[in-house]
Amino acid sequence: MKKLLLTLLILGFSLNAAVVEGDNVKPFKLKMLNSDEMVTNGDLKHRVYLLNIWAQWCKGCKKEMAFFDEIAKDNSLHGFGIVAVNIDKKPKKAIKFVKKLEKKLGHKSNIIFLSDSKKTYAKACEAKAIPISFLIKDEKVLKVYLGSFNTMDKEDELIKEIKAALK
């Protein structure tokens, strides 16, 4: 019986092959969240960027957006950008959220918002959590962050790692 349970457990855990540190970034071609313009990873001008996968139904995802905007426009992090891939079935609510966020910030967001409403990109990455973020330099994944940057410590650590990557 024990053996059977173990087998079942192992099977359950081993179905996925997620993106890990050191992997190449999974190439994407996604629509902008608020327009029909298509964006690929090759289009990005940033040498270092944070690729974030988020959803409107996820509270932690929405909470960290203001912080993302702040570091995306931070002059001391020149060469760094943020790409936020939204996976809502209906992007309508996500667009509304971004509009509200921009109203609160008082400026147009510096985050590049993309839409993956069929979740094909999230699936390709086998995202282990929502939100999930990948720190990418020269198309290589430097670090994977599961969950949101919900403490000052996590925020500071990210900034430190971005700075190190930009050097």
Binding site: G12, L15, A55, W57, D88, K89, K123, A129
Partner: peptide
């Protein structure tokens, strides 16, 4: 197996 991104 329901992945985190499928929990909408």
């Amino acid at each position: 197996h329901v992945s985190p991104y499928d929990k909408e």
